[in-house]
Design a protein around this nucleic acid. Structure first.
Length: 816
RNA sequence: GCCCGAGUGGCGGAAUUGGCAUACGCGUGCGACUCAAAAUCGCAUUUCCUUACGGAAUUGUGGGUUCAACUCCCACCUCGGGCACCA
């Protein structure tokens, strides 16, 4: 008997598949298309992580199944290769980043091929290829031309270790997402993209797509939409209003003071009117030096300074209100000003500290106002019933709001307003290894985009790509490259030396796969029409608020300007799923420093790719975080060895009837589970089948064996292919038609009827499928076990019968 | 603080609509093969009581609905994730 040797088998079939081009997606095919996308990796020097293998294998299974179901499948792969780790490695070793990238992508590609993944390699893309980033730059130029890219001097989040500016999205707990260094503020001229213009649509259009509720909620929370009102507070003595955004206009009648963010431009504009301007400016300056993290620390004491000499009028009560500044009011949110009252904890705390008068105007519903709150010893923040509020007395908060907006609106003091937490996207990085921003600054003409025919602006090959401490891009030192003619007036001008963030290339890569070699446009319209949208996109949960949001935004923009056909629809991804992280055996993250990393190459060497694939599918639910178990790999390997043996021993002339039933149940289960990404239960059902096969008398006939190989093949393609050819079947197993199960064979003729007394299982009796209640009762009452339990002192009060499942006899004690 | 998700054997986990809790795999124990070991195969394996037949308890905790609850409702505990002086 032959032994299962994956090493020989796997190399052989990989060669056959890749040489024959069976995984190539066909442009313009009559078949129904299916575009399946898995996030392309950053090709790090560490090689593939077993977590990569897990999500790629999962999507590979879906791709293989869809092909067998007759779809024209596009399942591509590429490299998101710009980024810091490569740059850092290059600096340390003195090798050019492009050399490092080449080495890493070659390694990744060969690892993926060793896994037997069915990617269409003819469509491979690389974000660092000038032919690719030409179009990344082209998109930037379009953003600029449409007024969505602008340069502004802003406080950026600066990571002193990586020497790079970070987007808000890349700052976690006030620390650099990548290296964990505490982020500091630095004022710099930066390119920004107006993603905020799309905030509303990015929320609304989530209704059009099939994403899990969790993903939708995360996106919505991140964008942070809140409905409220804009209120004007007239400033006494000057023709000026201070605008305030609020979601709680129902509390307006208790508003007794106004608070401005320390950086609010009113302060600068009216510095002559503010009597204590020195004190105010000193406070502003201090506030600026406090990081956002400290500023938003809830335990911190509230501080503030009154703007003496300034008062505003509350448009609802007509009372004069003092104006303060406090650092808990943020410049970037709303209008950078709030009206303050007794129904907000921070306002309350501040008023108590500085002796500012307070008044309440909301009391809790169905409840007597607590004495403490009434005496202003405690803050009531909830919604409730209005009082002290003129004609609105007695209304509930929610009902009062639109009415107050309408009333104040009638006098020109208020209007409905929606506010977002999402901020414009900081798009500049001061690093070498990224796409140059294709802009030119001319003293006469201002910022001008590089002429589209001159794209790409290639990254010059230089020796010193180390980032500078000053925050200037290393590209700024290359005078020859920087000095350029203005595209408009042809006078002397200078290139932008900042590069794009590493999200830039991944914003639109899924479009490029449709037409990866096009040099005239980002992708051909016809091909986009055929392939887009992506039918199914899988990626990590960690990309939900970053990559997923950015790329949806960029797609919408391209759709708006007609760069992609309207017929695709306004969303790039029809369906989005996410995978769980694979943890190390010690349940920590895999990390070189912990020494707990599992290398897929080692697993493949020892057990083969098929074992790795099926183990990673079997280990647990796909979306769930799951620890690696080296012992578990052995179990998966045993399963494959068992199949290899059975294929030699138990394929005969005739299939056992009972085994055929199990086979068809397995076909049904696997077919359904793959689409639901329930790979773990698919595998266990195939294991159950193998067990049944093993104990069967005659085993399987050739036809049924072929059916089993087909359902097995997406999971363990090499072994299936080998057994397929060993059995003398024609063609490739991966090109067969996906099997159908026979409904008749799945139905049972006999079932085990569960017999319960008072809900407890007392017996199991084999009966015919479809048995009637009366018949069942008769049989049940004959059972010795049941007879013994239904003694004379018990009275049957009810019999519950569930067809083909169970019968439950409910009794009571006669004596009781 | 707010919003999601989860809690089932020694371990990873399974369980259409409420209808046999613990499938499948790991581990462990016993046995077969072997001079021996590994590998392989067979049997057992939720816990407790019982020599056994059998019985009882059990899906984070406490209550509820129901003939019947891992599944539905209420309260709480623990863990994971997201957001957070956001007006």
């Amino acid at each position: 008997m032959r032994r299962y040797s994956p090493k020989v088998i796997e190399a052989k079939w990989q060669e056959k598949w890749y040489d024959s081009g069976v995984f190539k997606a066909q442009n313009g095919s009559k078949k129904k298309k299916f575009y399946l996308l898995v996030e392309f990796p950053y090709p790090s020097g560490d090689g593939l992580h077993v977590g990569h293998c897990r999500s790629y294998t999962a999507l590979d299974i879906i791709a293989r199944k869809r092909r067998m179901q007759g779809f024209n499948v596009l399942f591509p792969m590429g490299w998101d290769a710009f980024g810091l780790p490569t740059e850092n490695y290059a600096i340390k070793k003195g090798v050019h980043p492009s050399v490092v990238t080449k080495k890493n992508t070659d390694n990744f590609r060969s690892q993926m091929k060793n896994l037997g993944l069915s990617f269409d390699w003819s469509r491979e893309i690389n974000t660092t290829d000038p032919k690719y980033y030409k179009w990344t730059q082209w998109i930037f130029v379009q953003l600029f031309k449409n007024g969505l890219a602008y340069k502004a001097k802003i406080d950026i989040n600066w990571c002193p270790k990586d020497k790079i500016g970070l987007a808000n999205e890349e700052v976690v707990d006030g620390k650099c997402e990548r290296c964990g260094t505490k982020v500091v503020k630095k004022e710099k001229e930066q390119w920004l993209i107006k993603i905020t213009n799309y905030a509303e649509r990015l929320i609304k259009d989530l209704d059009l797509v099939d994403y899990s509720e969790k993903i939708k909620i995360q996106q919505k929370d991140w964008i942070g939409e809140s409905h409220g009102a804009l209120i004007k507070f007239p400033v006494e003595g000057v023709e000026e209003n201070i605008e305030v955004f609020t979601t709680r206009i129902d509390t307006i009648f208790s508003g007794t003071f106004l608070i401005l963010a320390p950086g609010h431009n009113f302060i600068d504009k009216y510095k002559n009117k503010i009597e204590n301007i020195d004190e105010v400016l000193k406070y502003s300056k201090e506030a600026k030096n406090i990081s956002d993290l400290d500023r938003t620390n809830l335990d911190k004491d509230v501080t503030g300074v009154q703007l003496k000499g300034i008062t505003v009028r509350n448009p609802a009560t007509n009372e004069e209100m003092p104006v303060w500044t406090a650092d808990f009011v943020l410049e970037q949110y709303g209008t950078g000003a709030v009206f303050a009252d007794a129904h907000d904890k921070r306002d309350f705390k501040m008023a108590k500290k500085y002796g500012i008068p307070l008044r309440t105007s909301i009391k809790p519903e169905d409840e007597i106002f607590s004495q403490k709150a009434k005496n202003l010893e405690e803050c009531f923040e909830g919604e409730g019933i209005l009082y002290n509020s003129m004609q609105f007395d007695g209304l509930e908060s929610a009902h009062a709001r639109p009415q107050i907006i309408a009333w104040l609106g009638g006098k020109g003091f208020a209007q409905p307003k929606i506010s977002y937490k999402l901020r414009d996207w900081v798009f500049s990085r001061q690093h070498y290894w990224g796409e140059p921003i294709p802009m030119i600054f001319c003293k006469k003409c201002g910022w001008q985009p590089v002429d589209e025919k001159d794209l790409p602006v290639e990254l010059p090959k230089i020796k010193k790509y180390k980032p500078t401490d000053t925050g200037e891009s290393p590209l700024s030192a290359i005078t020859k490259w920087v000095e350029v003619k203005c595209p408009k007036c042809k006078g002397d001008a200078e290139r932008e030396t900042d590069t794009m963030p590493n999200w830039a290339g991944s914003n639109w890569y899924y479009l490029r796969y449709c037409d990866p070699k096009n040099n005239r446009e980002l992708a051909n319209e016809k091909l986009l029409k055929y392939w887009m949208p992506v039918d199914w996109y899988n990626g990590g949960m960690e990309h939900t608020t970053l990559h997923l949001l950015y790329s949806r935004f960029i797609f919408k923009f391209l759709w708006d300007i007609g760069a992609v056909p309207k017929s695709i629809g306004s969303e790039p991804y029809q369906k989005r799923t996410s995978h769980g992280v694979v943890l190390a055996e010690d349940r920590r993250k895999m990390s070189k420093s912990w020494g707990n990393v599992i290398n897929p190459d080692t697993v493949i060497k020892q057990y083969g790719a098929d074992t790795l694939r099926i183990y990673e599918m079997f280990m647990g639910p796909f979306e769930q975080m799951i620890p690696w178990d080296t012992k578990g790999v052995v179990g998966s390997h045993r399963f494959l060895e068992k199949i290899y043996k059975l294929a030699q021993k138990k394929v005969s002339m005739k299939t056992d009837e009972s085994l055929r039933k199990v086979l068809h149940k397995t076909i049904k289960k696997v077919s359904e589970d793959i689409d639901l990404m329930k790979f773990n239960t698919s595998v266990s059902s195939m294991m159950e089948f193998a067990n049944a096969w093993q104990i069967s008398k005659t085993g399987l006939d050739k036809k049924d064996f072929a059916e089993f190989l087909k359902v097995l093949s997406p999971f363990v393609p090499h072994l299936s292919e080998e057994l397929w050819s060993n059995a003398g079947f024609l063609g490739l197993c991966c090109q067969q038609k996906w099997p159908k199960y026979d409904e008749k064979l799945i139905k049972e003729e006999k079932i085990l009827l569960i017999v319960q007394i008072n809900g407890k299982v007392r017996d199991r009796i084999e009966v015919d499928f479809g048995i009637e209640q009366k018949q069942a009762e008769k049989i049940v009452l004959k059972s010795e076990k049941i007879k013994n339990l239904l003694t004379d002192d018990k009275k049957v009060v009810k019999v519950v019968f569930v067809a083909n499942k169970l019968i439950n006899i409910v009794t009571i004690d006669k004596n009781a």
